[in-house]
Design a protein around this nucleic acid. Structure first.
Length: 413
RNA sequence: GUGGGUGUAGCUCAGUUUGGUCAGAGCGCCAGGUUGUGGCCCUGGAGGCCGUGGGUUCAAGUCCCAUUACCCACCCCA
């Protein structure tokens, strides 16, 4: 039992969940294509350095959550903890963003982080990831948020909140950061231990601390929007105007910050109240400095990721469609019928029909029960009488009508 | 990494407080009966070293310790 169990935090996607997973992916793919995005699937492993430089050395992800190993040549490689770095690498490596036209890309796939599993958080989890390179916005920012929102609403998810914010850029954020740090340093005593630690290396994270005390301090402290430089301010202003124009329901949250280092300006998240503590189904933002940080040209970027397991949780609370049953279930009622049945089944499948059968003969009762479980439309019965007459008995399970057809004429079924 | 909860049949769980017919129920599965040849109903059957390892005791699913897995929360994030 224990040796045969899946790895902690890694989960099977079982047959009765597959339909919904496919529906989710199909919808996301269709929509991305409709919005003019192209699919690019990067490998799930990259050189460790890519993530160290892209995500940031001091983040939790890089410090303690990556699945990193050496390959046989001694090179350090890592199972991707997120998709953006790999996509940036691919865009730079293949020069996908030359000229005026931005590269608009998306991908699906598993991500890996060594964290303690809980509701909505696994060690291997799946994301739908969308990225744009080479467009400074803010219209593209609005478009990508709209894409995300459209996806969720077309999947029938209501009761969700879209929050947006601007984190400023390298020319205005440092001033805010300094002011915030000095403000909070004076009030260290009323901060929680975690936040006192954050004060050192990541003061912006204090903004989204859930602790009551910390929240009330943050409320009266300096806000990013007062520090935005003129161009960041215009950028954000225009973004919110456009979103309002298309009637997208969102909320501005000046306290929204993101965990990964590379974000600039626009950030956004989508939350649902039905997910437990890990309430974010999707999150993303702009990362104008990332490409050059990774050694490429100074290409602006923007993107988001949807947590598919979390999305799945929201979807399976609604009615989940079942896999449709086969057109025919073949009930083999005596051993002599196995051969002819096998041939018939292959012929019917070759015609494109969905056919199921069990390759051992059994009693009529148990076979009919199997057909019922499989939600088959019709049963083809092959017993001694049918063998003698060269005809199969067909029974329609909903109308209960029965008729015969020659075994050697599969085209008539 | 830190806390809390839970591990008993394939699945969902009773039983643990007050050690001694406690190895159970429902569903599922198998066989048979009834039903127009399946669905409903009836009868019977298979299937569990009660997570694992120690300890206490005449006696442990039940008490104690350890360990492991899962779940939830913190942290972090999708």
């Amino acid at each position: 039992m224990s040796t045969l169990a899946a790895i902690r935090g890694f989960k099977d996607i079982l047959p009765d969940q597959s339909r919904l997973w496919r529906l989710m992916e199909d919808k996301a793919r269709d929509l991305a294509l409709r919005f003019g995005y192209a699919e690019l699937s990067p490998p799930i492993m990259e050189k460790t350095e890519l993530f160290q430089r892209g995500i940031g050395e001091v983040t939790d992800i890089v410090e303690k959550e990556m699945y990193t190993m050496e390959d046989r040549s001694g090179e350090k490689i890592t199972l991707r903890p997120e998709a953006t770095a790999g996509l940036v690498r691919a865009v730079l490596e293949h020069n996908l963003c030359e000229g005026a036209r931005p590269a608009k890309l998306f991908c699906f796939g598993p991500m890996f982080r060594y964290e303690r599993p809980q509701k909505g958080r696994l060690r291997q989890f799946h994301q739908f990831d969308v990225e744009v390179f080479g467009d400074v916005g803010p219209y593209i920012d609005a478009e990508i948020i709209l894409l995300l929102h459209t996806l969720l609403s077309e999947l029938g998810i209501n009761d969700l909140q879209v929050v947006v914010n601007s984190l400023g850029c390298p020319s205005c954020r440092p001033a805010f950061r300094e002011k915030l740090t000095s403000f909070l340093s004076e009030r260290q005593s009323s901060l929680c231990p975690d936040c006192r630690r954050r004060l050192e290396h990541n003061p912006l994270r204090i903004l989204d601390c859930k602790n009551e005390q910390c929240r009330s301090e943050v409320m009266i402290g300096p806000k990013m929007d007062q520090f935005l430089c003129l161009s960041c301010k215009d950028h954000f202003q225009l973004l919110t105007t456009v979103l309002t124009q298309v009637n997208l329901n969102f909320r501005i949250d000046p306290l929204l910050v993101r965990g990964l280092d590379y974000y600039t300006r626009t950030t956004f998240e989508v939350h649902s109240g039905q997910l437990g503590a890990q309430s974010a189904v999707a999150g993303g933002g702009r990362y104008d400095g990332l490409c050059s940080k990774l050694g490429g040209a100074d290409i602006p970027g923007l993107g988001f990721a949807v947590g598919l397991e979390r999305l799945f949780m929201l979807l399976s609370q609604a009615d989940s469609p079942k896999e449709s049953g086969p057109d025919y279930y073949v009930a083999v009622l005596c051993p002599e019928a196995l051969g002819p049945a096998f041939e018939l089944v292959q012929n019917l499948r070759a015609r494109g029909l969905k056919v199921e059968a069990d390759w051992e003969s059994g009693g009529l009762k148990s076979r009919l029960k199997r057909a019922d479980k499989a939600s088959a439309q019709r049963v083809i019965m092959l017993g001694p009488d049918e063998m003698a007459g060269g005809q199969a008995t067909i029974r329609d399970l909903s109308t209960k009508q029965q008729w015969n057809l020659p075994l050697d004429q599969p085209q008539r079924y």
